[in-house]
Every structure is written in structure tokens, then in C-alpha cells.
Design a protein around this nucleic acid. Structure first.
Lengths: 351, 351
DNA sequence: ATGAAAGCGCTAACAG
DNA sequence: CTGTTAGCGCTTTCAT
């Protein structure tokens, strides 16, 4: 069914048929102005007739540039990483870059050097490190970074001077969630944290702690979950055991909030009447949970777009000697509170 | 902060330092046996000292082989496609293939030729078309297919002789869901279908229809949804309006089932007491919906793995003249019923 | 076991 | 406007 190993058409063959040099064909391919219109037309026709396709690999070798971005990701089965990848593919398409995708099997420490070598051997023009900062999985970079010959943009990690970083302001999100509950009159506000090895989880928790402190309230009642709904179930149980008078809970993601909702249903705790609940992430489904979940929305798609934009900016500025050298910068996206049915004024303030 | 445009080390420089020819270094790089052990050791050390990295682009050009798979996907923001991609990345890693990722902006018809040209220009060794069959978005292939010089594996499309296809047996899944409800004593079973432009949606619906017919029951009460939870809400409403005596509903995916659950809660329809509900997909969260959702599980990760395996098999068999030519085949994965709290025996059969 | 020459398919740099 | 020459960095083929 396939046309067997027949060699593909090359620029030389096109040139021969057209009776010109390969260089002239190359000029046509690259839309150079310095080709006679008649010649151009003729060559274009021949290209079309022959079904000629330029070999991008050869071009890359010759130009020493691939217009390819290496993307390192992890946990594609979760919505977060895949929404971000979605943004990356879209922006890359728009800017004319090809993506070379590499998914890590876990989040914890990896042989960063091997992965970088892999991408660099394939001559990527830039790298997007879209793996969340977990544990010390960023450590190896400290020594290697100066030796990486292409720009690299990091996603979702704490600020570090001199690096290109794009992340959601998780701390601000934690504050917003807490503030919303405070505004509703709640005082006993518990927190279901994500795994604290994760930078994002620590930031969200810190937002809760700080805002509580500012309201002169203790931030003591919290549990560490795993991000999963299952852990949400057990975390709410633990929270209510530790402090039965809790009237509100902020969960560090929507999955755990769903688990908490599940636990509440099973034990006759009414949400929001007995307990207000706020999640984080604004999963598409969370508006249809019962009750619909109040949550913090953040644009992970945009995160991916920004990362590509920054990477390409850095690549370009390094090619053009003319353009001012691109200064690495950190970009933090602001999340946004979405109020739905799972939170309402505290009982005592309603009466 | 970066080492500026300094040229990377080449095989020639390594050769020069080692006092050998470039081919000898090449032999070491490719683990050829015909190099003296002493020479090999010396060269390896120099490679290490210099931090030399082979240029894979040059190698690809020279070998006329890239060990790269082009992956075309769509809808990465949905769990299905991203779980499949997850499987693709894992299997590709295992088999030593690099991934070139291309995401389409929508599911409907695209300029297939342009996308194929794009991938072929980049000299991919094979293609995985991981875009679901929607409307006539497969049509362009009919004419183009014979002219594609590399193997191509299609995901999630109807059987066609002579093509490599990997898909879930959605028809069987639809049957299983329906059969489960029939076994519970339900007779009035409605269906919330996915958008019927999708092959998957049609197959799931066909499974429901066929199984109903086999039980001598009419398969009349159905509504076409959009896959979204929002459409699930309105679809259940419509279903119950059309036939108020409906005691069970099979929704073509978990999101729509969640929407149906949402509608039921809001209107005092108790699930499963008044209405049994079965979904499709087994989203990680569906076990924590209230009530936990009975659904059809299918391994989309495995789907991706199989696609890569088939693609690589086809590529390899075409390289080795010795190996028997790989016959394109269709692989259909069997889904599995997961029983949870959203379905229970029909009221009249319980009494 | 090692090297020399040629080439993969394209483009940069220079010439005319 | 168009052609020639010389690579890009590696591997293949054929010698030795």
C-alpha cells in the first residue's frame, strides 16, 4: 500500500528539470525577492508537479537552526499539565515552531542532565521545562544551567533571579480563597493542602496562613493531602475530627474538594449550610459538582502560551545582534475567585 | 548567563584531540565492535572531557532516518486525548523514538495534506493520527494515503481494510452499559448520546440500540448532547420530559452523566432510587461524584501504547527486507463495566 | 582495526 | 537576477 523506499525528490532534481541551479530553487523556497518572476513561477509549477517537499532536516543542519522547541512535561494524565501543553502547542504553531515532546515518568528528581543532553543533541533552539517544582527536582540545574547553550523557560517554580519563569501566583490564590471565606463571616477555616513537596502546594497554603494571620486568626487546622479525591475524603474527615467547629474549608485543588464533598454527603454534613468549601483550579466539571464548587480559576492555557512567547523572544534576541539582549524575567499570572454554591455566609453571621 | 553563540563541539574536534579519524569516533559513538579497546577508552574519555554531544540532526540526514514519530492530536484539554498522549510518550520513550507533536485546533475537517506535508518535510519515520473521527475529517486521506511514504496508525476511527487502526470498542461498551441496566430490571432506558458527528458517539449509541432491540425494547428515548456537562443537564431534562417513566439513563460520557446528576439533584430526582445512571470513560473523579458513578472504563493510555507499538513495528518491518512485511491491522480494545452507586435494581423488580 | 573519500539535502557567501 | 563553491556534522563505502 505504501510507495516503497523510493528516494524522495530533492532540490537538485527540481533544479535540473527547471534548468536552473539548486540555489535558485532554494531562493524560491525561501521566498527571497531576488528571483525573476517568470523563473519563480516556472519553478513553483515544477515543485508542484513533482510533489517536491523540502527536507527540513537538511535545512536545519545547514542553517544550524531547527525552529524546534523542546518541551519537557510530566503528569499529562492530569488536567493541569495537559491544559498547559495545549497552550504551548497553540502558541508554537502561531510562531512557527515545531515541538519536540518529552514526558517524564514522575515528578521527583530525574537525571536532568540526560534529558537536557537528549534535547540539545537534537538541536532544539530553546527549552520549556514544564515540570512542576517538586522536592529537589530543580537542584541539578544549579550546576548545569550556565552550560546550556539555548534559552530555557521554567514553568511553575519559585522565583529565582536570572531565570525565565512563568507561573501562577498560587500564594495570591490561597489568599483570595481565604479572604472570600473570611468575608462570608467564617472564622474557623481549615485547609486541605496539596503534598508539601510541591511548591504550588506550599504557596497555596502560605496564602491561607498569611491571610488568616492578618485577620488575627490561627491557621492551625490543616491536613496534607495528595491532590487526589481519595485524599480529600480522608482529609476532611481528619479536619472535622481535629476541630468539629470548623465552618469552612479551603482545599488546594478541586479534586480534593470533590473528595471533601463526597465525605460530607456520606456523613450528612450539608454543604454549604454546615460547611463552606472552596477549591482551586476551576476544573470544567466543578461547576456541576453538587453543590457547584466555589473555586480559584487560573489560566493554565495562557501559562503555556506565555512560556512559548518568552522562549521565542529569548531565541530571537540571541540571533539578532541588533536587538537588545533579552533579560530573563519572571511572569506571575493572577488567579481569580469564582463564587458558586459551595460557600455561603457563616451560620452565626446569617442569623 | 548563557554561553553565547559558541559553536558546539564536533566529531572532528574529538577526532583531532584523540589523534584518530572522525570515522573511528563515529564507530565508538555507535558502539561498533571493530574498535580497539584502548582506542575506544581513550576516545570515550575525551568525549567526556570535552562534553561532546553528537548532533542528531546531522546523523538523521546522513542515515536518512530520524527515529521520530509525528503525533497529530486534538483537544488536549480533554482527558481522553491527553491520557492517550500519555501512553504515546511512554511507549515512544521505551522504544527509543522521539515525538514531534502537532495539535489541531478543532476536530472537524482540516487541511490534512498540509499537516502531512509538514510532518514529512521533517522526515518523521512514522505518523500517529490521534484525532478522533469526526464528520468527514478523514475524507482527504482517501486520495492522499497511497502517496504517504511512511507508516501511519490511526486512532479511534471505524474499521477500514488495509489501514492500521487502534480504537476502543465503543459499540461493545454501549452494549455493556445497557446490559447492566437491563440486568437490574430496567426497561425504560434512555440514552444521552455524544455529538453524532463523532464516530465514538455513534458507536456507543448503536450499542445501546442493538442491546435494547435484542431485549425487544424500543430504543426511542434519546437526546444528542455535546459531551459537556452543561449538555448533560439539559439532556436529562429533555429525556424526562419526553418519557417521565424513564427509570434508567446511559450517558455517552462521564461529563454528561455528571450534568445529569446535577439536574437530578436540582429537581429532587433521587439517583439511584428514582433513576439509575451509567456513564462512559471512568474519569478519575467519577468515583467521587454523588452518588459514585457506574461507568464504562477503557484504557486510553494503552491505546496510545498500542499505536506506538504498531507504528514502530511497521517502520521496522519496512527497513529490514528480511522481516516479513507488516500487514496493517485493526486493534479494538475491550472496555469494562465498573459498577458503583449510581445504578441499582429497578423499583418494580425490587418490590 | 583504522582511514580517506564521498555524500545525505540544503543554504551561506561570494562572484558575476 | 543567477550560478559556483564550500560547507553544516555525521555516516557509508571502500581501502589498507
Amino acid at each position: 500500500m505504501y510507495s516503497t523506499n523510493e528516494r524522495r525528490i530533492t532540490i537538485k532534481q527540481v533544479a535540473k528539470v527547471a534548468g536552473v541551479s539548486a540555489q535558485t530553487v532554494s531562493r524560491v523556497l525561501n521566498n527571497r525577492p531576488d528571483v525573476a518572476t517568470a523563473t519563480r513561477q516556472r519553478i513553483l509549477k515544477i515543485i508542484d508537479d513533482l510533489g517536491y517537499q523540502p527536507n527540513i532536516v537538511a535545512r536545519s543542519l545547514s542553517q544550524r537552526r531547527t525552529y524546534t522547541l523542546g518541551v519537557v512535561t510530566a503528569g499529562l494524565k492530569y488536567t493541569g499539565p495537559s491544559r498547559t501543553l495545549n497552550g504551548i502547542t497553540n502558541k508554537a504553531e502561531e510562531l512557527g515552531y515545531t515541538l519536540l515532546l518529552k514526558e517524564l515518568l514522575g515528578f521527583e528528581a530525574h537525571d536532568v542532565n540526560a534529558i537536557l543532553d537528549y534535547l540539545l543533541a537534537r538541536q532544539v533552539d530553546g527549552i520549556i521545562w514544564a515540570v512542576q517544582e517538586v522536592g529537589d527536582n530543580r537542584q541539578e540545574f544549579d550546576t548545569r544551567l550556565p552550560a546550556i547553550p539555548v534559552p530555557i523557560v521554567f514553568l511553575t517554580m519559585r522565583k529565582r533571579p536570572g531565570l525565565n519563569i512563568v507561573a501562577v501566583d498560587n500564594y495570591a490564590g490561597g489568599r483570595q480563597a481565604t479572604e472570600h471565606l473570611l468575608n462570608l463571616g467564617h472564622r474557623k477555616i481549615g485547609h486541605i493542602a496539596g503534598p508539601l513537596a510541591w511548591w504550588e502546594a506550599r504557596e497555596r497554603k502560605r496564602g491561607w496562613e498569611k491571610r488568616m494571620a492578618e485577620a488575627d486568626l490561627p491557621a492551625e487546622n490543616w491536613v496534607e493531602g495528595t491532590w487526589s479525591s481519595r485524599s480529600g475524603v480522608r482529609s476532611l474527615k481528619q479536619l472535622l475530627t481535629q476541630a468539629p467547629d470548623t465552618t469552612a474549608v479551603f482545599a488546594a485543588n478541586d479534586q480534593m474538594a470533590l473528595g471533601a464533598l463526597h465525605y460530607a454527603h456520606r456523613h450528612g454534613t450539608r454543604v454549604p449550610e454546615d460547611l463552606s468549601l472552596v477549591g482551586f483550579d476551576n476544573l470544567a466539571e466543578s461547576a456541576y459538582y453538587w453543590p457547584p464548587l466555589t473555586t480559584i480559576d487560573h489560566d493554565q492555557f495562557d501559562l503555556g502560551c506565555l512560556a512559548v512567547r518568552e522562549a521565542v523572544k529569548a531565541i530571537t534576541s540571541r540571533q539578532d545582534i541588533t536587538s537588545p539582549s533579552h533579560q530573563p524575567q519572571s511572569i506571575f499570572i493572577q488567579p481569580k475567585l469564582i463564587v458558586r454554591g459551595s460557600s455561603e455566609p457563616a451560620a452565626f453571621s446569617a442569623t
